[in-house]
Design a binder for these strands. Structure first.
Lengths: 232, 232
DNA sequence: CCAAAAGTGTTGGCTCTACACCCATGA
DNA sequence: TCATGGGTGTAGAGCCAACACTTTTGG
């Protein structure tokens, strides 16, 4: 979402010729059913009504950009305190068909896609959509999506960013599947485990996960804060 | 520079409570005398008058962000068509003591620091300043400078970005000195040459540079467009 | 002929990749 | 006991870092 809700200002000047407005838009990723999904909302009003887009909105007076992104994300999903990272600022005056709205794009990562509440009144609908099969998106959001995905992939390879996509405890196989899915290539199980462990990324919990077969030891990330590493 | 030139609008509303304004600021790097320098301007008006900062200004109505950055850079330096890259957007409402101005920071690279014309009437002065010894800067520009430097260093290691900091032809020693200075570590001459050549970064011109000692073969970059590589 | 910068190869250590079998459990 | 996913070690290849001497020119 990008355009202001009330597009007309008090003045008579056409919106197209007004000063650029400033918005944030947030691409939220989560793993669900072993697939990477992102959160889309359906727009209500204006030329873009009915189209799907990433949630977003204008930056408030005196508001921090990060705060605006958190606020819009919470409004659209009910999630508070998600991991957020600024991506890039998209400023083409024609990206929004109605007004000149410059958008600071953010990426959010979430480990519990199920927990999002139904969308707020601001939007006509909301859904988690597989990244590999996005519908046509409003504005320049297809480009934003590509940018976000690229950033996420890159950071997988040199940070512990996966901490934000996984629950507090997980098995090695789950971590490996996440990497393989996102990087779109198979990983050698033994080599992968060696590298991850050598990087000091994980801490084994004492516990096991029991399931249909041999139990798997559970791990947690050593730190939740951003950690730079060499691997893959 | 960030604040609008005329800070008071026609309306009575205090500027602090107005919608955020949008600006661009540009950190311009160049090598001069074997040292990395960046271009600073001295501000004229307002609370920040007399302080040094990176050139910048408000984004115009209907203007692309990249165009705004090019325009402000040209206004401050006379340079057209420099390499420009968006860095990050700084939006803390308190970054500008007067108004809420969100700034999209850019990095510019220039190979001919000498050719910049004297500063325009907008600024009280201008200078190339060694990056290692910047004066106190206005706004949050010290943070912006750090960000730009970090990006430049990182890109040296996996792209041909140095093409924009060197003249069309140069010797191997000059390239190596650039890398060593920016990365702040000594490089092994033989290993460095091997890697650069293996990456296909350079093309030997037929010519030589003659000087006080043994002549050096001149090189140019194989491409001027961005090239991703593995090295260092 | 001397000073100064340009240019050039090799080796040992280390890292990375490729690869296959046994284990533990629930059903 | 069987099906299924969990867990483990090694050897060969390729890569990278460390290292010093010869060449060419101008003065």
């Amino acid at each position: 979402m990008t355009a202001a809700a009330p597009l007309a200002t008090g003045r008579a000047r056409p919106v197209r010729l007004a000063r650029p407005r400033l918005a944030v838009d947030t691409v939220t990723f989560a793993i669900e059913g072993g697939r990477l999904k992102c959160y889309l909302v359906q727009l209500k009003r204006g030329l873009v009504g009915g189209k799907w887009a990433f949630p977003g909105g204008l930056v408030g007076r005196g508001e921090l950009l990060d705060d605006a992104a958190h606020r819009e994300l919470a409004a659209a999903t009910g999630l508070n305190g998600a991991y957020l990272e600024q991506l890039f600022t998209f400023g083409d005056p024609s990206r929004d068909p109605i007004a000149h709205v410059v958008s600071v794009a953010y990426m959010a990562l979430v480990d519990t896609p199920c927990r999002v509440s139904a969308c707020c009144a601001k939007y006509a609908g909301a859904q988690w959509c597989e990244v590999a099969a996005l519908p046509p998106l409003a504005y320049d959001h297809a480009i934003v999506a590509g940018y976000a995905l690229k950033r996420l992939r890159a950071k997988l390879e040199y940070t512990n960013i996966a901490v934000h996509l996984l629950p507090p405890s997980f098995t090695f196989a789950e971590l490996e599947e996440l990497y393989a899915k996102l990087l779109e290539r198979p990983l050698d199980r033994r080599n992968f485990r060696r590298r991850i462990m050598a990087a000091g990324l994980l801490r084994p919990l004492g516990r096991m996960r029991y399931g249909a077969h041999r139990p798997a030891t559970l791990y947690a990330f050593a730190q939740r804060s951003l950690q730079m590493i060499e691997m893959l």
